[in-house]
Amino acid sequence: MSEPLSEPRPPVNLPHVDADAHHEASWREGLKTGTPTLFGIAAWGLVVGIAMVKTGLTVPQALGMTLLVFAGSAQLASLPLIAANAPIWVIFATALVVNLRFVIFSALLAPHFSHLPWRQRVALGYVSGDMTVAIFLQKYPNEKPQLGKLSYLKGLLYPNWAAWQVGSIAGIFLGSAVPSEWGLGFAGTLAIICITVPMVANRPTLVGVLVAGVVAVAAAGLPYKLGLLAAVVVGMVAAMAAEEMLANRKLKGK
């Protein structure tokens, strides 16, 4: 007589499967939390990319700077010094002072990841940014070990770094193509457009943006830049009026 079939054994690596699933979920949570900031980061990178080229750096020099430095405020602070042929030590000292806040960030993150190899900690430090560190510390204010903590941080850091590089590299090539007389004001305009467009999420907002744009152009000749103030006020009123009209339509529809 044949022996009865035995019950299937549970996989011995089930805890590892659960841990992997938890790490993936943490990474996705970090990505989801940090996604709203990526548009602003890319726009900021766009401004810095154009500024590097407009200051006189060649495209290869600008690409090298954005990939190696990855610090917008330090880059902008260093560019006038580079253009003025300041001594190297002055440029480095300026960038160091501007970026001293990252010493504080490192001190805050160190207790969370002191167990990691130093190479990995250096790599994480390179891709860390102001917003990503702040978001991480809001999620994990306590230093105690938690499953998925590193994955959550990576979900914040890597997309943030990629958004910056995409914006900055686009700015570098765009800056080398636009006429020099357009200056940095053109970069600021592009940055505002990049930030504004994703925020136009509904009809009242679209109405406010369009009305503000029309008023700004029509009132451009007013003294003391009052046309911009008028555009902001009229645009806000138009957006609120549009929202009120839509709310009334919904009530009547019921």
Score class of each variant (00 low, 15 high):
residue 89 W to T: 14
residue 254 K to N: 12
residue 16 H to S: 14
residue 82 I to D: 00
residue 100 L to W: 05
residue 22 H to S: 15
residue 110 A to L: 11
residue 163 A to N: 01
residue 92 F to T: 04
residue 232 V to T: 08
residue 64 G to I: 14
residue 95 A to N: 09
residue 176 S to E: 05
residue 64 G to H: 10
residue 116 L to G: 05
residue 95 A to R: 04
residue 117 P to C: 09
residue 80 P to W: 09
residue 138 Q to W: 07
residue 51 A to W: 00
residue 142 N to R: 06
residue 143 E to V: 14
residue 245 M to K: 01
residue 142 N to K: 03
residue 107 A to I: 13
residue 15 P to D: 11
residue 237 V to Q: 05
residue 80 P to K: 05
residue 223 P to G: 08
residue 88 I to C: 05
residue 101 R to C: 04
residue 97 V to C: 07
residue 42 A to T: 02
residue 8 P to K: 09
residue 136 F to E: 00
residue 110 A to V: 07
residue 238 A to E: 00
residue 151 S to E: 04
residue 202 N to T: 00
residue 67 L to K: 11
residue 50 I to M: 02
residue 215 V to M: 09
residue 221 G to W: 15
residue 49 G to N: 00
residue 60 P to Y: 01
residue 89 W to G: 03
residue 164 W to I: 03
residue 133 V to L: 08
residue 192 I to C: 13
residue 60 P to W: 09
residue 229 L to K: 10
residue 204 P to E: 06
residue 223 P to K: 06
residue 249 R to I: 04
residue 200 V to S: 06
residue 44 W to G: 02
residue 126 Y to W: 15
residue 4 P to N: 12
residue 66 T to M: 15
residue 210 L to P: 08
residue 194 C to K: 04
residue 109 L to E: 00
residue 108 L to K: 04
residue 9 R to N: 05
residue 22 H to P: 08
residue 200 V to I: 13
residue 156 L to A: 01
residue 185 G to Q: 07
residue 132 T to Y: 01
residue 212 A to K: 08
residue 146 Q to W: 10
residue 171 G to E: 01
residue 220 A to D: 14
residue 165 Q to Y: 05
residue 214 V to H: 07
residue 15 P to N: 06
residue 217 V to L: 14
residue 58 T to P: 03
residue 30 G to V: 01
residue 99 N to R: 12
residue 27 W to Q: 03
residue 122 V to A: 12
residue 31 L to I: 13
residue 164 W to S: 02
residue 181 E to W: 15
residue 9 R to T: 10
residue 45 G to N: 01
residue 188 G to E: 01
residue 20 D to P: 02
residue 209 V to P: 04
residue 249 R to V: 05
residue 140 Y to H: 09
residue 86 A to P: 00
residue 124 L to I: 07
residue 30 G to I: 04
residue 174 L to N: 09
residue 159 P to N: 10
residue 64 G to N: 07
residue 129 G to E: 06
residue 243 E to D: 08
residue 81 L to I: 11
residue 152 Y to V: 00
residue 233 V to A: 12
residue 5 L to N: 09
residue 89 W to E: 02
residue 220 A to P: 06
residue 98 V to D: 02
residue 67 L to R: 07
residue 75 Q to W: 02
residue 178 V to L: 12
residue 55 T to H: 06
residue 34 G to K: 01
residue 229 L to M: 09
residue 163 A to E: 02
residue 225 K to C: 08
